[in-house]
């Protein structure tokens, strides 16, 4: 018997399961859906066991493919038959909504396919673009003078996205700045992208607190360990240090003529000090402000506040001591 193309087998499986009145058991699927090798009652037991094992492997792979594609595969147990598991697809849950993208919108959505440097998420993006194409309004495809990419990327992101959608707890090895390597058990709530870095916010089960994790510091694979609907995601998630929520501070900084342009743009010139201009700057993160003054390498002098000035001087002293080797 010629091998059926896997796409054809999956298509027949989807059609069969969407039309199943209640459910289809594994043996019904094996015996009726085109593409699976049927049970042969006349085969010797050894050969029958082999083909059954081959069917089980193939069916598990097909289930994984359907799940990855987002097909909501319902597991239906029949009270009359105990542990006999059946499957069904709820067509109203499965169908792509009417999201009619214009050719200009399709063009820009298509850019997402090149965004992710990680191969798995890149494939997901292309798959998403292909799905949306089915419902896109007709018309010629257009090119747009735009592009985007992210230098970071991790195979962990796709697994975390699924775990969040299914409310399942995850486990991973994590390299923390504060406490070194450790295994974390986390209820994942939200993925955040900032400046090319990916973050996960979730409830750390061992610490009993919400934490923010950098996805690039996850070492190895993310394992899904919890059952579906294992927790609730809070309505208002605190993005913590990822967004500037700290109180506003003001600094007055003297800047050398024709320099510190970025700082000048952030603030306003309020006077002069000899040849230098005095700029008043509003800031929320003292660390970032200190770093910006330091990076100006002597083109900026902090007048006030004194805490900022002292911090700049103490960092510069430490740096003077730095030597190679």
């Amino acid at each position: 018997m010629p091998r059926t193309d896997p796409a054809e087998r999956l298509l027949n499986l989807i059609i069969a399961l969407t039309h199943a009145r209640v459910r289809m058991t594994r043996s019904e699927i094996r015996d009726t859906v085109a593409g699976y090798e049927r049970e042969d009652p006349s085969a010797p037991p050894e050969q029958a066991a082999r083909t059954t094992a081959a069917f089980e492997r193939m069916f598990e792979r097909d289930k994984d493919d359907l799940r990855r594609m987002g097909v909501p595969l319902l597991t239906v147990t029949d009270s009359a038959h105990g542990d006999d598991i059946g499957y069904r697809i709820d067509v109203s849950e499965a169908a792509l909504e009417a999201v009619a993208l214009t050719p200009a919108e399709m063009a820009v959505v298509g850019l997402a396919a090149d965004f992710w440097q990680d191969a798995t998420l890149g494939a997901d993006a292309r798959q998403g673009v292909a799905k949306l194409a089915a419902r896109a309004t007709g018309g010629h495809s257009i090119e747009v003078p735009f592009a985007a990419r992210s230098a970071s990327g991790s195979a962990a992101t796709g697994v975390l996205a699924e775990a969040i959608a299914e409310r399942r707890a995850v486990s991973f090895a994590y390299a923390s700045a504060a406490s070194g390597h450790s295994i974390r058990q986390v209820e994942p709530w939200l993925l955040v992208l900032r400046g090319g870095q990916q973050y996960l916010i979730g409830q750390d089960r061992d610490r009993g607190q919400a934490r923010t994790y950098r996805v690039s510091r996850i070492d190895g694979e993310v394992a899904i360990v919890g059952q579906p609907h294992g927790f609730d995601i809070p309505r208002d998630i605190d993005l913590g240090a990822l967004v500037p929520t700290a109180a506003e501070n003001h600094a007055i900084v003297a800047v050398r003529p024709d320099s510190a342009h970025a700082l000048r743009r952030r603030g306003e010139v309020i006077g002069v000090d000899g040849q230098w201009d005095l700029v008043k700057v509003t800031y929320r993160h003292p660390d970032a402000m200190r770093a910006q003054i330091l990076a100006l390498a002597g083109a900026a002098r902090v007048i006030e506040p004194v805490e900022l000035r002292d911090a700049v001087v103490s960092f510069a002293r430490a740096a003077v001591e730095v030597r190679g080797g």
């Binding site: 298509l11 989807i14 499965a94 169908a95 890149g122 949306l132 796709g158």
Partner: peptide, 15 residues
């Protein structure tokens, strides 16, 4: 009754 499948969680995040 065949129809395109809705976006999966991974596809939604990627796009």
């Amino acid at each position: 009754g065949v129809t395109q499948i809705r976006l999966s969680p991974r596809e939604a995040v990627a796009l």
